[in-house]
Design a protein around this nucleic acid. Structure first.
Lengths: 169, 169
DNA sequence: TCGAGTTTTCAGTATTTATTGAAAACCGTG
DNA sequence: CACGGTTTTCAATAAATACTGAAAACTCGA
């Protein structure tokens, strides 16, 4: 069916463009979109052909997606090639992205804040105290957010929705 | 006090590096860090000198931060120059960043998902149905997350912490 | 151990994004 | 309305990032 191909191509293209906003590269986002909507696992060559990209590019981004945990390698009996298959469950995807963002964005921030707070803790001037207080406020908040993110990720989807709805709905 | 300057410089430099990971540019993150830890509002020239950047760069990023709402222009009587001052409250900063991310990341994603779901809603093949279901699942989830983000942002900080702690602590 | 099929690496190149610096526009005051 | 101070714009350039393609490394069956 031609209409499906068209809708899927659009999804892949747009999701790729979005990836850029997100700070992940276009190809990676496109491959992810492609695999999320693939009826079966795909090979590197199929991905290359579909997206019209080089082997190196396909390879690098497939492995990066594997490292994130958003796709996985599947081996088929009688096949030497690797096949790739995306995690399709939205809650799973969410928790993976949350974990990865935490690792790359939250944890380094916490480290910096803790270090700067520590280094300024014994400065006696008013400016020094203000700086220390600001670092601590940021550190406390980011630490709290980080903990919340973990807690939420560890819930089952249904429970998370129920909880959220009850509280805020 | 030299020690303070050192700690603050480190904070500015590291926060700038982090900005990159975050998908916002280094200068913007550095200016934000600088102003968040500034005892008073600063002028464009002070920012330029402190960070050793050009006027154009300082100007562009100061205005971008104003557009986000993370800093504001303050006018001082008897002064023709504009001064800039950062929002220092962590909960305010969080809600601003959440709003902006929603606008740039969540809303465009929702639009794409809705469009692709719509376009594929009447395809009768199994592949077509699977695609439609996947689009809908993503759309529902992202829409839900978006709503939650709004609800949380609209709370007072103390109440948010209390709620989160009670539920998940 | 050889060789075909497959994956991995990476130097070179292309593309995108950020920054500079100077000119133009703006703005309030005399 | 002219002038000095200030902000804004933007073409040129620099820096960062992504992509290609081909060579090297790996793998496994014969």
């Amino acid at each position: 069916m031609e209409k499906l191909k068209q809708a899927r191509d659009e999804f892949v293209a747009q999701w790729g463009a979005l990836g850029t906003q997100w700070g992940i590269n276009r190809t990676m986002a496109q491959i992810h979109a492609l695999l999320m909507t693939a009826p079966q696992a795909m090979t590197t060559d199929e991905v290359m052909e579909d997206l019209e990209i080089s082997r190196g590019n396909a390879h690098t981004n497939l492995k990066e997606l594997v490292a994130w945990g958003l796709i996985k390698v599947v081996v088929k009996k009688g096949e030497r090639r690797e096949f790739f298959e995306a995690e399709k469950d939205v809650w799973q995807i969410f928790t993976i992205v949350a974990r990865e963002r935490k690792r790359r964005e939250i944890e380094p921030a916490l480290a910096i804040l803790a270090k700067c707070a520590e280094e300024s803790s014994d400065i006696q001037t008013p400016e020094g105290k203000a700086f220390y207080d600001q670092m601590r406020a940021l550190e406390d908040f980011v630490g709290f957010a980080s903990k919340m993110s973990d807690r939420i990720s560890s819930l089952k989807y249904g429970f998370a929705v129920q909880l959220a709805t009850k509280l805020l709905g």
